[in-house]
Structure formats: structure tokens, C-alpha cells
Write a protein that binds this DNA or RNA. Structure first.
Lengths: 151, 151
DNA sequence: CTTGACCTTCACATCAATGTCAGACATCGA
DNA sequence: TCGATGTCTGACATTGATGTGAAGGTCAAG
């Protein structure tokens, strides 16, 4: 398919599809006329890239992940050298850190929402905060979020 | 404490501490001479901020989360209005999406590492990838990562 | 009193991810 | 064939999170 269709199917501006290519994340064929030709599997690939970008990875790192994203037919064993493996391992560790952080924050926010929701008011009911406060919730505001190691 | 100490204790450049303040994430007192004065609890606060930034939240969103980060003594019930709650809920949903994406990717990378590790070679053993490939691993490269909904 | 470490504000630089526009060629339908 | 739409390359703008440096005030120790 050409860039427009891929754009529609992934909700990604063509500008970005070209950018991802420039960054080595996508390598479509070229038709006679110079138009990019994308294979079917690249729809998923693009969504993967977007997902990883959204959770804070850079294109450079994502590029390292590409062999794992493995919709491609090749197995990429030529990456099986210690330096590559080490890089993937440290990134994996960072990834696990991130997951832990996100889970803590999710829990904290969910807790907060639960504590707060009973007090939800429609706009016309608005009352100075003090009034609502005196109404309940003596529980301590202890919710501990966290926190990664400093970069 | 002053900005230098907070910086050392959080591993965060003073520049960023001032930036976070500018973004409304931190509101230290001021001493007579204009120096910023930070309370003890802001050490954790800063680490929380860094953690959230690292996993892809913007300062604007983090600001919305601040009431939940609750080391502050107040309970912030004045945020208990539907619009605020709705915002937190959608962010909570996004957060859960992110966690799912990260977990999928973690699994995919872990799998990949496991499949690849048996072939790890010390640099001096380097052989063209073909050689390694013919040695094994007929399993299909199916590892499916994913993928968020388009923004 | 001077030096050095720390603090202030202001401003410009950078980097990655995007937006946007311009000028030219390609393709397709009326 | 004409016009609309899609594509190409290239370049400049913007935004958010940072880095960096200038010019000057504060303060404690020698």
C-alpha cells in the first residue's frame, strides 16, 4: 500500500511515517515512480512504534528493539553479540522499572479517585472546599507514589 | 533546604528544579534573601515528578496528578468536581494502556533475549550470521508486540 | 576584605517529535 | 485534457524537556 493508506489505517500523519523511515524504523520499498510501497505487516509495526514512543522510548531505542518486534521473516541472529544483548538487557531493565513506576502511580491515582469520588458534585452544587472536607474522610493522605532512580 | 541540597539529594540539576517550579509542580518558600527553601517532603515529590516524566507524562498532566501525590497535609477535596474527576479518569485509562503496552513489549523482548542468548558469541568468535542461523531455531518469529490506539 | 561556593534572573541553545508549507511530479476520474 | 488528489523532497516552525552561560547578589571562612 502507499503512504496515504498506511496513514489512514494507523491514524499516523504521513509526515511521521516519513520521519520514522528517516530514523530507520521503517524501510518501505519504492515503486517505479518513487512512491513508497508498504507491506501489510507494517500496519502493526507502525502501531508498535507509536505505542513505544508514547510510553517514552526514543526512536533510537526503538530501533534497537526492532528485531524483537519480529513480524519480519528473518530471525536476526546476527544481533546475538554480547554488546547487543547487553543493551537489550539494560533496556529491558529500564522497561521493568517503568512498569513498576506506572503501576505505583496507577494505584495511587485509583486510590485517590476512590477517596474523592463520594464527594463529586455537580457544578451547581459547588460549595467552598472546607464544607466538603468537614464532611468526612479522616484517612491520612499517605498515598505514596514513586519514583525512579535519578537518570 | 536550599536548591543545591535538593539537587544533590535527588540527582536533579538545579535548572530543572526551577523549571518544575515554573511549571507549577513545585512551590518552595522563599527566604529573606530570595533563596528558595524546600521542605523535606519535596525530595520525594521531585523523584515522583522525574519518574512520571520518564514514563512519558508531560508536566501539565503531572500537575493534575499532584493532589494524588499527597505528601502535602491537605486533602484537596476542592478538586472533587466532575471535570477534574473525568480528567483523572481518562489519564488513569491512558496509564493502564501504557502499562499494558509496556508489559507486552517487556515479554516480547524477554522472549527474544531467551531465544537469542544461546547463540551469544564472544567477539573473537564472530562468524557471518548465516552460519549461526543454520544452526537451529526453526521456531516462527511470531512475537507480537503492541500497540496503542492512535492518538 | 576577599575569595569561593551558592544563589538569583534572564536568555539563548539543543534535541526529539511533530506541524506546516512550497514546488514539482504522478495518477485518476470526468 | 483538465482538475483534483496523492506523492515526492526539502526546509523552516514549534513544543517540551533540558543544557549552558552571563551578570550579579549572598554568605561563610580565611
Amino acid at each position: 500500500m502507499r503512504i496515504g493508506e498506511l496513514s489512514r489505517r494507523t491514524g499516523t500523519p504521513t509526515r511521521l511515517l516519513r520521519y520514522y523511515e528517516e530514523q530507520g524504523l521503517l524501510t518501505p520499498e519504492r515503486a517505479e515512480n518513487g512512491y513508497r510501497e508498504y507491506g501489510e505487516h507494517l500496519v502493526d509495526r507502525v502501531l508498535q512504534i507509536r505505542g513505544l514512543l508514547e510510553v517514552g522510548f526514543t526512536t533510537r531505542i526503538i530501533k534497537e528493539f526492532l528485531p524483537c518486534l519480529g513480524n519480519a521473516p528473518e530471525i536476526h541472529l546476527h544481533n546475538a553479540y554480547p554488546d547487543k544483548i547487553a543493551l537489550l538487557e539494560t533496556e529491558l531493565a529500564r522497561l521493568e522499572d517503568r512498569i513498576r513506576i506506572l503501576e505505583k502511580n496507577r494505584d495511587a491515582i485509583a486510590d485517590y479517585l476512590e477517596r474523592i469520588r463520594p464527594f463529586a458534585q455537580r457544578p451547581e452544587d459547588r460549595v467552598p472546599a472546607r464544607a466538603a472536607m468537614s464532611a468526612g474522610t479522616a484517612s491520612p493522605p499517605n498515598t505514596g507514589l514513586l519514583s525512579s532512580s535519578p537518570r
